[in-house]
Design a protein around this nucleic acid. Structure first.
Length: 793
RNA sequence: GGACGAUUAGCUCAGCUGGUUAGAGCACUUGCCUUACAAGCAAGGGGUCGUAGGUUCGAGUCCUACAUCGUCCACCA
């Protein structure tokens, strides 16, 4: 073996080997299947260390399941359509989708995504991911579009997907409807304007942050128990500036203490307005257009942008003595998560999936899934409980999966595509046959689907990969992994779809990983330009294993922050592992698996190793990679390197002195324990462990990769563990003695007396030669007594 | 405003179902070039485990309140 581990060279070589041997290719056999639903990363920019962090944690679990003997189904995809991708393409090419024919824009999108997908894939490969790339999918591929459209058709036919003209969340910048999940809340400074309405000649003061809405004010609301305003209920009020009259109602939703306790209901200032408008059968008065400007027909402010309109109205109110005061406040505003534009509520015709009607069932689904860590389930419950809108799945955008839908030009009927024709593009394809009214002219559905409408069917894309049902039994899949930011989107939507299509959960377990923060509290994101170091540069500098080892040091679900020093610390480990293996393998020359008798100290390291293996398996099964790693680290570094290797060192160097029985025993233990250590580490640092395996162990194990070995729980013999502790205590005492006396570790001792329990004295006597060697004691005496005592003379 | 998480050595964090003198890595001090490893080895200093109560024979570990930080959600009158 090389004196230094050739990191970059070795990693590339190993990756090539895995690929050549097709080690991760999925084929059906009689083993139990472990299937993984892994996030198709959104093609919206570069991948950062946060992605590496969470994907690697999941990948480590998958490798561990391989060691347990499962048949692994581990596909990987890319989410390459939708608004985020459109924005990337627009940014990168300096174009705007609105300025060109849709087909031209889509072509540009396709060119851009394939470049990014190649880049992403190479990065995952350079981290050594044990993914079956034969199963690669893209959410815009024919197969994904087909499954996504099929899902839509099934839901539409069952009445779970419907089209309706009603108020919807609207982004005036992206000029599309959005779903509640794409809404973010940010704090904004604003003014509470106290405005004078008139009732029977007296002033009624109302506080509002959006005076530009005055023209679309359709009612006033007060609380039924509010003594101040009881007398006004049922009367009419005059809207300032516009001077039309509206009714005054009472409703328990009004908060007495907020503002002046009177609310103006506008179409539509917020979700409460939409409810009141429906409930009290109020008219709709248009204010805001799709592009965020005020409707042309609105007096004073028609055609202006909302913000300008607000200023204009405030000035007009001032001029007409209709403004009592303006109070500076900080309030929370709903914005579009992608562009941070303030969201408006506009009525429009959109496609929805019913989620409000199945909240209870969705909560039950949440209970059925095992969440890791368990408290992440709260976020799901919280989200489902607080849902206010059905899931709007139509987007007035360009690059996405089309709705398989046309409308009859004559009667307006909705015409659905035939399932056998999927995927269809209604803009290019025609429906089969005529409308039931006999007409043969159609208007295609122009909208595309929310990208989540497609990524929420990844289990189906995977399960039905071969267009037959042969994989349908992969549902529910064994495990979903993802970070906690997309619980309300990806996890939620996937559960919705799975519930509708199968009545069951999409997976058995969900593994939620944390984030990497650039510094305390600050999430790494492309837009915030705080990206620390590019993953590919880090891999080049430190190697994939060093980064992987770092990702394994954190508790699942917990955010961490990036520091290059941590990566350097993992390098220390890799060097240690290399050197220890190199030493052990050197001592294993002439190794055969036979031995006559196990020396007690060899028995100890084997038993201790079993104990560690058991704990390791226990923790890994709980997705506690950090605890599992800690368990092997302690064993490897301290028990194996610091103590065991020191004890057997001379025995293996000077074989004649110790005799072949003892040598064979040592070699046996060394071989078994080192291989077990490598196995346990292999999910975390697969390259170096495979490299060591191939250079030595492969010849004996007759398996082409460490990945194909099996790990098992074992019964542990406690007496050996206790004996090991005695040996460690002896070494500790001797080392301490030498350190305190400024002696070299090699310095000789005249006499060492070990007193201890009778049965361990027997073992100690058998270990006498080893002990003499590693303590450099000229003479060792053993005395039987209950308490352990070590005397150095 | 609601929920959840965190608060343990100078720094970053482990401490699972309560049980012997509270652990690791980094940093620090001292010693050691011991034929795998000086990016190493050995020894050591350093913590009244956020605060205040409570349960218990016994609490970092359970309960209650509070404080600080973080995250998610809600909040546009």
């Amino acid at each position: 073996m090389e004196k230094k581990y050739p990191t970059n060279l070795a990693e590339k070589e190993i990756q090539k080997y895995w690929e050549k041997e097709q080690l991760y290719k999925f084929t059906m056999d009689d083993r139990k299947i472990y299937s993984v639903d892994t996030p198709p990363p959104t093609i919206s920019g570069k991948l950062h260390i946060g992605h590496i962090f969470s994907y690697t944690q999941a990948e480590i679990i998958v490798r561990f399941k391989r060691l347990l003997g499962y048949n692994i189904f581990y596909p990987f995809g890319f989410d390459d359509n939708g608004l985020p991708t459109e924005r990337l393409v627009e940014r990168e090419l300096g174009i705007s989708a609105k300025d060109m024919p849709r087909s031209v824009f889509i072509k540009k999108c396709q060119e851009t995504i394939s470049k990014y997908e190649e880049e992403f894939k190479n990065l995952w490969k350079s981290l050594g991911f044990n993914v079956d790339w034969h199963l690669q999918y893209e959410t815009i591929s024919d197969l994904s579009r087909k499954i996504s459209q099929k899902s839509f058709l099934e839901l539409a036919k069952a009445g779970h997907a419907y089209q309706k003209d009603m108020p919807v969340l609207w982004c005036p910048l992206c000029e599309t409807s959005i779903a509640q999940a794409e809404l973010d809340a940010i704090g904004r400074d604003a003014y509470f304007h106290y405005v004078k309405f008139k009732v029977e000649g007296t002033d009624l003061i109302i506080a509002t942050t959006r005076p530009e809405y005055l023209s679309s004010c359709v009612a006033l609301f007060v609380h039924p128990n509010d003594k101040r305003y009881k007398k006004y209920i049922g009367k009419k009020a005059k809207v300032p500036l516009y001077n039309f009259e509206i009714d005054i109602y009472s409703d328990a939703k009004v908060e007495i203490d907020k503002g002046t306790g009177i609310v103006m209901c506008c179409t539509y200032g917020d979700i409460t307005d939409t409810n009141w408008q429906r409930q009290y059968n109020l008219p709709y008065k248009k204010l805001i257009s799709a592009d965020g400007t005020i409707d042309r027909d609105v007096l004073f402010i028609g055609g202006m942008h909302v913000n300008d309109a607000r200023l204009k109205i405030v000035n007009l109110l001032k001029e007409n003595d209709l403004l009592v005061k303006s109070e500076k406040i900080n309030h929370v505003v709903g914005v579009h998560e992608r562009c941070l534009t303030d969201i408006e509520i506009l009525p429009s015709k959109q496609w929805y999936i019913d989620v409000l009607g199945i909240k209870d069932e969705l909560l039950k689904m949440g209970d059925k899934i095992k969440w890791h860590p368990s408290h992440m389930k709260n976020r799901y419950i919280d989200w489902v409980t607080n849902l206010k809108w059905d899931w709007c799945i139509s987007r007035q955008r360009f690059f996405g999966v089309c709705f398989p839908v046309w409308y009859c030009k004559k009667c307006g009927n909705v015409i659905y595509a035939d399932e056998k024709d999927l995927p269809v593009n209604p803009l290019e394809d025609k429906p089969n046959g005529n409308c039931s009214c006999g007409n043969d002219e159609f208007i295609p559905e122009n909208d595309v689907m929310d990208t989540w409408a497609t990524s929420s069917v990844t289990p189906f894309i995977n399960a039905l990969y071969k267009e037959s049902d042969e994989r349908s039994y992969l549902m529910p899949m064994s495990m979903r992994c993802q970070a906690h930011d997309i619980i309300r989107t990806w996890a939620f939507y996937t559960i919705v779809k799975s519930y509708y299509h199968t009545g069951n959960t999409p997976w058995k377990d969900i593994m939620i990983s944390g984030f990497v923060l650039a510094k305390k509290g600050e999430k790494i994101s492309k837009s915030k330009s705080n990206v620390v170091a590019s993953p590919s540069k880090l891999i080049e500098k430190y190697g994939a294993d060093a980064i992987r080892y770092w990702t394994a040091s954190n508790k699942l679900g917990t955010d961490t922050w990036f520091s290059e020093e941590d990566i350097i610390a993992s390098n220390r480990f890799l060097i240690k592992l290399w050197n220890a293996s190199r030493f052990a393998i050197m001592q294993l020359s002439g190794y055969t698996s036979e031995y006559k008798k196990l020396m007690p100290v060899d028995k100890w390291i084997i038993e201790r190793c079993k104990e560690v293996t058991n704990n390791y398996i226990k923790y890994m099964n709980q997705y506690e990679i950090g605890l599992a790693r800690g368990e092997i680290d302690r064993f490897f570094w301290h028990d194996f390197c610091d103590n065991y290797l020191e004890v057997v060192k001379e025995r293996l160097y000077q074989r004649e002195k110790h005799g072949m029985v003892a040598v064979k025993s040592g070699q046996y233990a060394l071989y078994r324990v080192l291989l077990e250590i490598l196995k346990m580490y292999s999910p975390i640092v697969p390259h170096i462990t495979e490299y060591i395996y191939l250079t030595f162990f492969k010849e004996y194990e007759d398996k082409k990769s460490i990945t194909t070995l099996i790990i098992r729980e074992n019964k542990v013999e406690n007496e050996s563990l206790k004996f090991g502790n005695i040996v460690k205590a002896v070494l500790e005492q001797v080392r301490k003695y030498k350190t305190v006396n400024n002696m070299s570790m090699k310095a000789e001792l005249d006499k060492l007396i070990i007193k201890g329990e009778e049965k361990y004295i027997g073992y100690l006597k058998q270990t006498k030669l080893d002990l003499k060697a590693c303590t450099s004691a000229r003479e060792i005496n053993f005395i039987s007594q209950e308490k352990l005592e070590i005397v150095i003379e």
